[in-house]
Design a protein around this nucleic acid. Structure first.
Length: 262
DNA sequence: ATGGTGGCCCGGCCA
């Protein structure tokens, strides 16, 4: 079973690239962030033609998250499972072949003195409470998406360039560790110990070609899934070419039979 | 060089 996550930075702008990528890599589940679509505007037919059922949560213009699955999408929930605002359509969940899958888009903190930074920390705390109340760490759970946090210094191109900046501050990293302490593993790190592998590069100043990136797109899974993961890769080819997203997809393969298989 | 690019959708905001 293959699970991927990709901040597409507008599905309107990226639809041809995303469809092409799905045909090439055929993940069973693709979590998307920043669709920037309203639910009624989601191009469900285009995904259905490739065999994907989609659960989407968006208001248009900003944010928006989705899960596309070839293995069903049962019990979908938008937001934190109530009418509470999730700070603008940033979490959606569905059960795909018995795995409770979440696509999340953590708020960008902008700068350490910003109200958005405080909102980001609060959102991560809310996510932790959601996990405690709504999920079971002894089951198969995946939380995938753009966390806007680089877990440690291996995950930024130059730690010295980020002193005093968001994405790397200790409170953000501690908030991420709190999520992991609930019972999740950053499964990419089970397969790669080295630094310098990134999932996001600023569009500006040729950052991609200069290697100035960060690893902020993560696949967090419970132990039962982590133990069955066989590989984790970031497809930096998807950051190349015409009209790329500023993020590359993360792909994780698991030794998990599809539903109904022996 | 305190810039740059690209998405929203047309004047800035957001990343």
């Amino acid at each position: 079973m293959r699970i991927a996550t990709w901040n597409v930075n507008s599905l309107n702008a990226r639809l041809p690239r995303v469809l092409e990528w799905l045909e090439e890599h055929r993940p069973d589940v693709l979590c998307m962030q920043e669709t920037k679509l309203a639910d009624e505007a989601f191009p469900s037919l285009a995904f259905a033609q490739l065999g994907y059922e989609v659960v989407h949560h968006g208001n248009g213009r900003w944010n928006g998250v989705a899960i596309a699955s070839t293995l069903g999408a049962e019990n979908p929930t938008q937001g934190f499972g109530s009418l509470e605002d999730d700070y603008g359509c940033r979490i959606v969940a569905a059960t795909c072949a018995g795995i409770r899958v979440h696509s999340v888009y953590v708020p960008n903190g902008r700068s350490l003195d910003s109200e958005h930074y405080r909102a980001k920390l609060a959102w991560l705390t809310r996510l932790r409470t959601y996990l405690l109340e709504q999920c079971d760490p002894t089951r198969d759970v995946a939380v995938c998406g753009d966390f806007n946090v680089a877990p440690d210094d291996r995950d930024v191109w130059d730690p010295a360039a980020f002193v005093g900046a968001t994405h790397v501050s200790e409170p953000e990293r501690a908030a991420l560790r709190n999520l992991l302490d609930w019972g999740l593993e950053d499964v990419f790190r089970r397969h790669h110990g080295e630094g310098g592998i990134f999932s996001w590069w600023d569009y500006r100043a040729g950052d991609f070609h200069q290697g100035r990136g960060m690893r902020i797109d993560l696949v967090l899974v419970t132990k039962s899934l982590a133990e069955r993961s066989v590989s984790a890769e970031i497809d930096r080819n998807a950051r190349k070419g015409k009209k790329p997203s500023d993020h590359a997809p993360v792909i994780v393969d698991f030794e998990v039979a599809a539903a109904g298989q022996p």
